[in-house]
């Protein structure tokens, strides 16, 4: 088997080449996956402790009260206060709508597993597969849309949310 002959004389690679070209031309179809957090508490992007500390000039101990607060809660609460957790958004099974569900559950459901006043240090991990718009093209042909809008939508962009639940303790003057 001669490789050069295989690529030039045999017609095998020509349709594949054309296929690659056609798929690559679908770049105009780009889906987007959004992270929408419908929580009933503050969910801070970035370093909340530093942010609120600079925002409240009169109470520099404020940061310490956040950090130290986990020592003043019950044993059960202490187990979960400050725990890192991760939510996966997007992909073919879990979409934006599930984030809302998970966030609500994290705060209010499951027998108060997470007892906190909010989330700090939220970070987002975005994952974009290189073949995602080919997938999105297929999804748009089947489902007729290119933007994820709720559970069941098909998209390949994945967003991962990471945060830290905190508990505030007001410093009494």
């Amino acid at each position: 088997m001669n490789f050069r002959r295989l690529t030039t004389e045999r017609p095998t690679f020509l349709p594949l080449f054309v296929f690659c070209l056609m798929v690559s031309l679908t770049g105009c179809v780009t889906s987007r996956n959004s992270l929408v957090i419908d929580a009933s508490r503050p969910v801070y992007f970035g370093n909340m402790a530093k942010t609120l500390s600079s925002n409240s000039a009169g109470s520099p101990e404020f940061v310490e009260s956040i950090v130290a607060s986990s020592a003043h809660v019950s044993e059960k609460e202490r187990t979960y206060t400050g725990e890192h957790f991760t939510l996966y958004v997007g992909g073919t099974e879990v979409t934006r709508g599930n984030v809302v569900y998970h966030m609500e559950r994290a705060f209010q459901g499951e027998a108060d597993r997470f007892i906190g006043d909010g989330i700090v240090n939220a970070k987002i991990e975005a994952y974009i597969p290189w073949y995602s718009f080919a997938w999105d093209l297929l999804a748009s042909m089947i489902f007729g849309k290119t933007e994820s809008s709720g559970p069941g939508d098909v998209t390949q962009e994945t967003l991962e949310f990471e945060g830290k639940i905190y508990r505030l303790t007001k410093t009494t003057p």
């Binding site: 419908d38 801070y44 992007f45 970035g46 530093k50 942010t51 600079s54 925002n55 970070k123 991990e125």
Partner: peptide, 14 residues
């Protein structure tokens, strides 16, 4: 990784 570690004001996602 998307983040904002040194914000001056509170930025909430809710």
């Amino acid at each position: 990784t998307l983040g904002a570690p040194s914000l001056e004001k509170p930025v909430s996602m809710s």
